[in-house]
Every structure is written in C-alpha cells, then in structure tokens.
Amino acid sequence: MSILHAHRLATAALLSLILSSSAWAKDVYVALAGPMTGSTAALGVQIRDGAAAAVDSINASGLPPGTRLILRIDADDACDPKQAAAVANRLTTDGLKLVVGHFCSSSSIPASDIYAEAEVIQISLASTTPSLTERGETKLFRVGGRDDQQDRVAAEYIVRHHQGAKLAVLDDKSTAGKGIPDIVDQPLRAAGERTLRQSYVAGEKDYPALVSRLKREGIQIAYIGSYYNEIGLIVCQAAEAVARLTVIANDPLTTSDVLAIAGDAANGTLFTFMPDPTKNAAGAATVAKLKGSSLPAAGYTLYAYAAVQA
C-alpha cells in the first residue's frame, strides 16, 4: 500500500468517526500503540514520528470546522503480548475509537480481539503475520505487506544467487520470528536446497553456541527471522569468530541501531523491505519532513544494509 493510500485510509477512518458524532466541532483523539520502550524501541520512535507527521498533514488537509485530530502516544506495549492486551483494555475503557498500531504481530493479535469487541478501528503499521487479517475482523486494517510477500523475495534471491550454498534458517521462537523463517524455508527445500534449521532465545546478549555451530557447519548464508538487537549481535559475533557468512533478514532491520550494535560487521547484511519511500512521489512532502525515516509503499525488495545507510 502506498503512502497516499495509507493516508486516505486513515483519513476515511477519522471522517467516519467525526461524521458519526452529532457534534462535528470537537477534538478527535487517536491512540498510537507500539513499542516506545523495550528491545524494539528504536522502531517505536520511527512509528511515533511518522504518526505525528500524518496527524499534522490530516489536520492541515481540511477537516470539518472546529475539528482537530490529537495523537495520544501513551500506549506503550513494549512488544509484549500481555502489556498489549492491557493497553488495549485501557484505550477502549477511555473511549478511543481509532488506534494506530500495534507494531509486533504478537501484540497486534491479542489487542485486536479487544478492539473488535469494542468496535474500535485498528490500523496496524507493521504487523506482517498473515493470520492477523485472516480472522474476519471488519475494523482491522494493515498498511504494510505480509510476511509471505517478503519471504518469497528472500527465498527467490537465495535460490537465484546462492544456489548450492550451505544455508541456515534461524528464528527466535516468537510469533513473527518463527513464522517468517518457516515460510522462507519451504521454497528453499522445494528448490532442492538443504537448510540447517535452528532456534535461539531472544533477549540474550551472547550467542557463542549458535555462532560456533554456524561456523562448524560451514554456513555461508543465514536467514534470520528476529528483531534488530539479536540480529545485530549475531552478525557482530559471527564476524568476530570469522564465521564468514552473509546474514539475510526481514524488515525490522530498518534502523541505524543495527550499526550501533554490529558496527562495520553489518556491511553486506541483506534485508527485505518495501521499495525506497523517498522515490514515492505521493509521499514526498511527508518524506521531506521525516528525512531518514522509513515509510511504507507497495511490495517488497531486497537491500544491502550498507547501501541503505549510505
């Protein structure tokens, strides 16, 4: 979905809320729910800044006289399912009717059940697990592509450019972290590629056993489904161990915090992401206000990390 389509979706949702009220002149509150703290907080900051820019744009685009959109950013779920459910319960109790979020699929899914019961409109920014929108919810939308889109891009790239290489497919056992590698693994095996399938524990600081096995097995390409902290650590520790492998991951690598964690070892790391938003004419004004931020467009492609950061 393009930036323009996402903007129209949000505007349509807001207008439906405004027009359903007997009094148009009012402040309309929208909640932003996502990881403002925790291991994915850097992505939460990107989401917060993008949402604030969208609110400014919508307010300037011509709402009914006296109506103003106000963004609430006090709904921190830290990408924790239980905390996300608590956030959703609080927002519905407060009477919020539109929630932008959540980020992690493991948070969006339990929260969406609560929003659905309260008839709250939910627009998820980056929850990419296919099952999120396959459950028949009528007020739940997403503006980012599904995992099975970017997984196909990654698998096709590996088969096309690294046929016969020693492959590993890794996951952190989370909802998104496990689902993405599972989908990547299937076309690789169908193409006759043999993969080492391995899980690890998210949140740890050192992965010596995992890195040692990758090196011992002579792994050349490691696809990892996880978040930027763990991937950055694995990339760094693999380089220190001279494991000589290329890491391919998914869209949570769209933050410069990976460089802070892995340093020069991050060079050459690949990840799937939506096409370059700076080339999307429909979102030029927003991109100009958010220089350096990542905004969604349609489909997926593959980027080399150093090239994106240049």
Results as ranks from 00 to 15, higher is better:
Gln46Arg: 14
Ala155Trp: 02
Ala78Asn: 09
Ala116Trp: 00
Thr93Gly: 01
Ala176Leu: 08
Tyr200Pro: 00
Ala304Trp: 04
Ala84Val: 10
Tyr303Gln: 00
Lys139Pro: 03
Ala202Cys: 02
Leu290Gly: 01
Glu137Phe: 09
Ala260Thr: 15
Lys173Asn: 04
Met36Gln: 10
His5Gly: 08
Ile180Val: 03
Arg72Ile: 10
Ala154Cys: 04
Glu217Cys: 10
Ala54Gly: 13
Tyr223Lys: 04
Gln122Glu: 11
Lys279Ala: 03
Ile3Gly: 07
Pro110Leu: 08
Thr254Met: 13
Ala60Ile: 11
Ala285Ser: 05
Pro181Thr: 08
Lys173Gly: 01
Ala265Arg: 11
Asp77Asn: 09
Ala154Ile: 15
Ser61His: 15
Glu137His: 07
Thr37Met: 02
Ile158Met: 00
Gly62Asp: 09
Ala54Thr: 14
Ala53Val: 12
Ile221His: 06
Glu230Trp: 14
Asp80Trp: 12
Arg244Leu: 14
Asn250Glu: 04
Asp257Trp: 01
His161Ile: 06
Val87Asp: 12
Ser293Met: 02
Ser57Val: 14
Ala241Gly: 09
Thr40Asp: 12
Gly34Asp: 12
Cys236Met: 15
Arg244Val: 14
Leu253Ile: 07
Leu32His: 04
Leu98His: 00
Gly50Lys: 10
Ser39Gln: 15
Gly203Ser: 05
Leu63Trp: 04
Gly50Thr: 06
Arg68Tyr: 07
Ala51Lys: 08
Leu214Gly: 03
Val45Thr: 14
Tyr200Leu: 05
Asp77His: 11
Ser20Gly: 15
Tyr303Ala: 01
Arg142Asp: 03
Ser174Gly: 05
Thr92Met: 07
Val28Phe: 08
Tyr157Ser: 01
Arg194Val: 05
Arg244Asn: 15
Lys205Met: 11
Pro65Val: 14
Ile121Gly: 05
Leu32Ala: 10
Thr272Lys: 11
Lys178Cys: 01
Asp148Thr: 08
Ala33Pro: 05
Leu17Asn: 10
Lys82Trp: 06
Pro130His: 02
Gly283Trp: 02
Gln237His: 11
Thr301Val: 05
Met274Asp: 05
Gly225His: 13
Ile158Glu: 00
Leu4Phe: 04
Ala118Asn: 09
Gly101His: 10
Asp77Ala: 07
Glu137Lys: 06
Arg135Glu: 03
Pro296Leu: 05
Gly136Pro: 03
Tyr300Asp: 00
Gly268Ile: 08
Gly192Cys: 09
Ala88Asn: 15
Val153Asp: 02
Thr255Ala: 07
Ser39Ala: 13
Thr195Arg: 06
Thr37Lys: 08
Lys82Tyr: 11
Ala262Arg: 10
Leu210Asp: 06
Ile183His: 00
Asn89Tyr: 09
Asp74Pro: 15
Lys279Ser: 01
Tyr300Ile: 00
Leu71Cys: 15
Trp24Ala: 08
Glu119Ala: 10
Ala53Ser: 13
Arg90Gly: 14
Ala168Gly: 04
Asp56Cys: 04
Leu245Pro: 10
Asn267Trp: 04
Ser256Gln: 13
Leu259Cys: 04
Arg135Gly: 02
